[in-house]
Simulated scan of single mutants.
Amino acid sequence: MRVEIWSDIACPWCYIGKARFEKALAGFAHRDQVEVVHRSFELDPGRAKGDTVQVLDMLARKYGRTPEEARFMEANVAANAHAEGLGYRTEGRDHGSTFDIHRLLHLAAARGRQDELLGLAYRANFAEERSVFDPQVLVELAVAAGLDAGEARAVLADPDAYAEEVRADEREASELGANAVPFFVFDRRYGISGGQPAEVFAQALEQTWKDRPPAFVGDAGAAACDTDGSCEVPRPGGTV
């Protein structure tokens, strides 16, 4: 079974949703047969690289709220994060372009370290006093995730590196009708939008597993008849 997750580092519900999904996956009997693939989605694709603002200021402007209302919104999200055992800072966080982070996550995927880097990036962005919009911080996170520092720097220095992979993920999200994240797709059969409770993800895992096509049983090389009517004749001992 494959679960694809479209998300953005700037999205707090992606951070919380990841934890809730992982809680459901940990309790799933067939968890070792589930492949999790993280896909790219930018919440602010038009923001220029290096154009960073404080999250509270961004929220106030984006939603037409007062600073106090923006703080209340963040406090509500923080309460949900804390309920999942996640750290969450409501003040002093940056908001900026996440395109470079997504490109680096594709490098991590190619090296089998995507989930590790994603988890570290979420923690740095939401729980720690570190800006994921600083290239040096991104390199440090990449190294902590098991990537080579030189390779990570090379990707960040080349704006074309993994750019098409990011754009392809975003086009696919649009084709699937996803206009918000997190967005979870189970075996291309079922979709779940938002950081739902762990119980919802658990139900989706069970239902998707139940609805899988029947697995092939037997020896694919056993004697059989072709569409033209010719048949192989088994020899003694089971060989053809």
Rank of each mutant, 00 (worst) to 15 (best):
R39Y: 00
P67M: 11
G85Y: 07
L118D: 04
A79W: 09
R39V: 08
A149L: 09
A79T: 08
R65H: 11
I101M: 12
R89M: 02
V37K: 09
T98N: 09
A108T: 09
A109H: 08
T90G: 11
G112V: 00
P135I: 07
L138F: 09
G64S: 08
A83S: 06
V139D: 02
E69I: 01
Q136R: 13
T98Y: 13
A121H: 11
A127L: 01
A142E: 06
V137D: 08
N76I: 04
G50F: 01
E69A: 10
Q54V: 14
V37M: 01
H82D: 13
L104F: 10
N80S: 10
A145E: 02
T90M: 09
A75N: 13
E116Q: 14
R103Q: 06
A127Y: 04
D94Q: 08
G112A: 10
L86F: 09
A149R: 13
A121K: 06
D94N: 03
A81W: 07
A124R: 03
H102W: 04
L56Q: 15
E140Q: 06
L104C: 09
R93Y: 03
N76F: 07
G119Y: 07
G146S: 04
L86Y: 06
G50V: 10
S40E: 11
Q54W: 09
T98Q: 03
A124K: 08
F126S: 05
M58W: 14
G119C: 01
A110E: 12
D115R: 12
E91A: 03
L107K: 03
L120K: 05
E69C: 10
L107G: 07
V37T: 12
V143E: 13
L147C: 01
A142V: 03
Q54T: 15
D44R: 14
A110S: 15
G112R: 02
L86G: 00
P67I: 11
L118I: 03
L107A: 11
V37I: 05
E42S: 09
V139I: 08
R113S: 06
F41H: 13
Y122S: 01
P45G: 13
H95Q: 15
Y122G: 00
H102G: 02
V37N: 05
Y63M: 11
D44N: 12
L43V: 00
H38D: 05
R89C: 11
S40V: 15
G96I: 11
G92C: 06
A81L: 02
H102T: 14
A81V: 07
H95G: 15
E140N: 06
F72Y: 02
F41A: 12
R65T: 14
A121S: 15
A83L: 12
L104G: 01
T90V: 13
T98L: 00
D134Q: 13
G96H: 01
Y122I: 06
A108H: 04
K62G: 07
L104V: 12
A142Y: 02
A145L: 01
D115Q: 09
L59S: 03
G112H: 07
I101L: 08
D115H: 02
H82T: 07
E91H: 07
E74Q: 15
V139F: 00
L86T: 00
P67K: 11
F41L: 02
A70C: 14
A78F: 00
E140D: 05
V132F: 01
D100N: 02
E116R: 13
Y122N: 02
L105F: 06
T90K: 08
V37Q: 04
P45T: 05
L138V: 13
D134F: 11
A142L: 05
L59P: 12
H95Y: 11
A60K: 09
T98F: 04
D44Q: 14
